[in-house]
Write a protein that binds this DNA or RNA. Structure first.
Lengths: 248, 248
DNA sequence: CGCACTTTTGAGTCAGTTCAACCGAAGTGG
DNA sequence: CCACTTCGGTTGAACTGACTCAAAAGTGCG
């Protein structure tokens, strides 16, 4: 779809904002140069579907800026989001050629893409890429399993609190902020997208957000901007054990 | 716990039933020999907890025979199973030293263990192990995401049908059977363990199994042995698209 | 201003939970 | 050998958290 004209603003890897967290994190300069040779950028607008489930995937990619979702849709339309992609997250699977999920931009998104074939060849020669990808995949697996607990056992209120806590954390992480009591961030998701991620209806999402607001656990400026006066209270509502899922 | 005396029945890798599916699948003979040097077997009885969440993990392992679960428990006791471990599945994560989940044997289980430190060193020298582990981890991630759809969006009846279909498939797969209309298998889980995996109560599990039996979609011999006269009907009840999750 | 879209709120319903009783098979020990 | 307990499983009845359907209230944009 839509080939954009942003190619000219392509930053080089040295100044890339996700250089030290993405799949290329461990690469040395020669390896990086090889990656740089086969990379290209694409950008997408909020709401665009980047990849359709079942489509042939001829590239893999890293999210550079913005947020996207991975979603599964049943034949009757029931929809479940199975992953949130933040900057540095990886899309696609070496060795598979059709996409298993829809990938949808929920904000404007910039991706750093690699054609799959050359990427796979490079991976075979460059253990650092495979190592980093394994690390990232194991992290994603942990995140998916944490989400299984949420989907299977948490109440609607706990689900909302968990999502807000996670977005707050990732958002803070991107800005390199230390842990602090107060945080403000933008929700990169509509109520419906939240519902799809949490296994709820959008009405329930709206009601629970209203309830958290009413009780002073969050404050809203507009529909999307959230201020959390006391992050520990929010984490308590999420019913996560101890650290609220901070990497141990 | 319980160091067993089965060590003497330790098969060598050549005759190992999971040789071609486990983390060692791609290893050549010299690599295999290196693994063989650091491996040891442990067996556990049904019901035993192999590993407690939070425990120090000084080994990683492959399931050789039997079935185990990965479960997460919230402070108030709510429990969610986040993975079923069948023969050839891998337990543990190189580079992490405390277990994030309880691992519980639901049948008698035999594990092929590797002390973590030597395994990690070997992995650094042996790309085939890391490659295979990446492949397996990506498969598990797909499975986890399929389960997220189940937990978030499926009805109780669909959840039960999905679980039965998956156990039937993995069970058939182990026996190298081709796809056939009729299948019979043993459920390696109690009603409660099924409930924990499906995000239901054990009463609901029992009721839905009774309902499927009443409608002739399954037949029971005892509580645990399930006969499926028409696997396609079961898969239809599971509401999976197309192939019921067969590897594409 | 008016149309389209997202979000909020309300009222009634229902799938799945909760609580409780009961069943059958497998020990156990007097 | 039979009472007694335990354990996994089934079934019933009442309850409830989240869903469904419906309508109103923002919000943004040409």
């Amino acid at each position: 779809m839509l080939l954009d004209e942003d190619l000219h603003i392509a930053p080089n890897c040295g100044s890339c904002p996700i250089r030290h967290r993405a799949v290329c994190a461990r690469c040395e300069s020669t390896e990086l140069a090889a990656l740089e040779d086969i990379k290209f950028y694409r950008s997408f607008q909020a709401g665009q579907t980047l990849i359709w489930s079942g489509d042939r995937m001829d590239f893999v990619a890293s999210v550079v800026t913005g947020v996207a979702t991975l979603t599964q849709v049943m034949e009757d339309g029931r929809t479940q989001t199975v992953g949130l992609l933040f900057p540095s997250d990886f899309v696609g699977r070496p060795g598979r050629d059709t996409a298993p999920y829809n990938v949808i931009a929920t904000t404007d998104v910039m991706m750093c893409c690699f054609r799959k074939k050359p990427f796979e060849e490079l991976m075979a020669r460059t253990p650092h890429i495979g190592q980093r990808l394994l690390e990232m995949t194991l992290d994603e697996l942990d995140a998916a399993r944490e989400w299984m607990l949420l989907l299977g056992r948490k109440t609607a209120r706990e689900k909302i609190a968990s999502l807000l806590a996670i977005v707050a954390r990732r958002d803070a992480g991107l800005q390199g902020q230390v842990r602090q009591r107060q945080v403000t961030f933008d929700l990169p998701l509509t109520r419906e997208a939240m519902a799809d991620y949490l296994g709820l209806t959008l009405e329930t999402v709206s009601r629970q957000i209203s309830a958290l607001k009413r009780e002073g656990i969050i404050e809203l400026a507009g529909k999307r901007t959230v201020h959390v006066p006391d992050i520990d209270r929010l984490i308590e509502e999420a019913a996560d054990d101890a650290d609220g899922g901070m990497p141990g």
